[in-house]
């Protein structure tokens, strides 16, 4: 973010750390679209018959990849991509055994705390990506289990919406600029693989009784385009793969 601001401040370390983690995941996991989800079995036993699921605001950002590999955020693409993902979520969840409730920025109680939860999810999600999906980064205490949580604070979301679970979605999509495309072409001639645009994301289902993440999935793909409704639907479907609802 320091690039954007006329500032001399220290970089926001958390933001950089998160960006770094996501970048590392993207670089190391590469390849084609792939998902790999985690479930915590003990919590699933508590699953109500027809749970109410709160859809948190989808955290979507689309960017252009410059020749040199910088990401330039694009507001128009982001608006399109986000509305495509939202529409896909609506239609994909309609057939599930769940009642869907939409998060309302002005309707809930304590919007400051809720904003903090969204930020926390993006931090926890990046941490899970790093320590659960990347070989060599596994935490000794979490090696053979999946016990991540957004903490007790998440239970505050339960009241205003009467929801049992909350679904958090984080998606980033990027597209090579003309210069980058040329660079990829040149690279191919010289035998060097140059990274093009990427789609990366993760989703969590949080039990609002405990704040625990009971299901987590991540998506990494070189193809896809969230600007296209059908492709956005495909990406969302992949992301929701094995969602226990």
């Amino acid at each position: 973010m320091t690039k954007r601001m006329r500032r001399i401040a220290r970089p926001e370390n958390r933001t950089w750390g998160r960006a770094l983690a996501v970048t590392a995941i993207v670089l190391l996991l590469g390849a084609c679209a792939q998902t790999q989800s985690f479930l915590t079995s003990e919590n699933l036993a508590q699953k109500p018959a027809n749970p109410r699921v709160l859809i948190m605001p989808t955290d979507v950002e689309l960017s252009e990849l410059t020749t040199a590999g910088l990401l330039e955020p694009n507001a128009a693409w982001t608006a399109t991509g986000r509305s495509n993902v939202d529409a896909a979520l609506d239609s994909l969840l309609a057939g599930r055994n769940a009642t869907v409730v939409r998060y309302d920025k002005n309707g809930g109680a304590g919007s400051a705390a809720e904003t903090q939860l969204l930020k926390l999810h993006s931090a926890v999600g990046s941490t899970i990506l790093l320590h659960k999906y990347l070989p060599g980064f596994a935490l000794p205490t979490k090696k053979d289990k999946f016990n991540w949580s957004l903490g007790q604070e998440a239970t505050a979301l339960r009241g205003p919406y009467g929801a049992d679970y909350a679904l958090f979605i984080y998606l980033r999509d990027s597209f090579a600029s003309d210069g980058r495309k040329a660079l990829i072409f040149v690279g191919a001639l010289l035998g060097a693989g140059i990274q093009g645009g990427r789609q990366v994301g993760f989703a969590s289902l949080v039990d609002l009784r405990s704040g625990e993440i009971i299901w987590f999935n991540r998506l990494v793909s070189q193809a896809g385009d969230l600007r296209e409704p059908e492709l956005a639907r495909g990406a969302t479907e992949n992301l929701l793969d094995e969602l226990p609802l």
């Binding site: 973010m1 955020p73 694009n74 507001a75 919007s111």
Partner: peptide, 19 residues
């Protein structure tokens, strides 16, 4: 515009600031 992209990112930062 590319400028709108910069604004979008800073709008996120502002949301953080507000809380």
């Amino acid at each position: 515009s590319d400028e709108a992209g910069l604004w979008m990112q800073m709008d996120r930062v502002e949301e953080d600031l507000q809380t």
